[in-house]
Design a protein around this nucleic acid. Structure first.
Length: 294
DNA sequence: AACTAGATCAACCGCGCATTA
DNA sequence: ATAATGCGCGGTTGATCTAGT
């Protein structure tokens, strides 16, 4: 049976008084009380009948308070377990099955920007859960990136900075490596695919971003740093792209990287970077950019 | 056929933030 | 202002599956 009695000697979770620890020790260690009374509650894999009960209840009543849901639905589970089961597996809009090439590419690009913010990455992939993406990353991408000499955490090329994993000096250099890693990964995948079916969308995307880059919006985007006013470059870019004045700090670094690059200098890696940046915003933003394209 | 090692992924946990009392 | 509570997140675990020997 999976997830049996916790190992009291090694698991931090055993600090719970319910797991057998004296209440005093529990309090001294300042450990938060468990989310629910675990005695008598079922753990481990969900049975079909449990799934049916949960689906039936949520379909009729919505989930409401997760804490009170199990009792109301007739489940011997804690609310946390119910929420996890629903959000990661039972939700009707969950997309099962292997990730598409485009989804994989997007995950890599978003990870280069967002890091291990799985929920934020999942928000950009409809039907995919943070857990699924996290598993995908840890089981596939991490090893693959490492095998081609890229640090999966920072997206930096080990080979650029010698054999050690020390960080490169400047933010712009770091981002060059970051974007390069995304490009290398995408290209490595594409090279394994012999069909022209996959090549065509790439060209289309490149043309699209080249058009955006050369458009009025792209010009503003490139010249942002030259504009002297109260907004930071990233703020201006955000206003331009999405209307928000609260950009992620990583975008500020990204803008710095873009600044000074001419269209002829920005090859595929920068298109990939630009694509990542724009993909982070919703599709309405893309409509705005397309409307301003030549 | 039996064993082993590595890969996969559902489910767990503690923590931090936001909200409520 | 503070404590309690609820929820969601990221990291980790371990049962099961698969491929290799």
């Amino acid at each position: 049976m999976r997830y049996g009695v916790p190992n009291l000697t090694s698991s931090p979770a055993c600090n719970s008084p319910i797991a057998g620890f004296p209440i005093q020790i529990y309090r001294e260690k300042m450990v938060r009380a468990p989310c629910c009374e675990k005695t008598g509650l079922k753990r481990g894999p969900w049975a079909q009948e449990e799934d049916d009960l949960l689906i039936d209840y949520i379909n009729k009543n919505g989930h409401g308070s997760w804490r009170s849901l199990p009792k109301l639905a007739g489940l011997l589970r804690c609310g946390k377990s119910c929420r996890l089961r629903w959000t990661n597996y039972l939700r009707p809009d969950i997309k099962r099955g292997p990730f598409t090439l485009e989804e994989e590419k997007l995950v890599i690009q978003l990870h280069a920007i967002l890091g291990n913010r799985w929920a934020a990455i999942a928000a950009q992939l409809p039907g995919r859960t943070d857990n699924e993406i996290k598993n995908l990353w840890n089981t596939h991408f991490r090893k693959r990136l490492m095998s081609i000499g890229i640090d999966p955490q920072t997206h930096e090329l080990y080979s650029l900075y010698g054999s050690s994993k020390r960080l490169p000096a400047s933010p712009s250099t770091r981002h060059m490596a970051q974007w390069e890693s995304a490009r290398l990964e995408a290209e490595a995948r594409l090279s394994m695919e012999s069909s022209s079916i996959l090549a065509s969308p790439k060209i289309t995307n490149t043309d699209h971003f080249l058009r955006v880059w050369q458009s009025e919006a792209g010009e503003c985007f490139r010249n942002i740093k030259r504009k002297p006013d109260c907004f930071s470059p990233a703020s201006q870019a955000s206003v331009l792209i999405s209307g928000t004045t609260e950009p992620d700090s990583r975008f500020e670094e990204a803008i710095t990287f873009y600044h000074g690059s001419s269209p002829s200098e920005v090859e595929d890696s920068s298109y990939t970077a630009l694509e990542s940046f724009f993909d982070f915003h919703d599709h309405n933003d893309m409509s705005f950019l397309e409307a301003h394209s030549n």
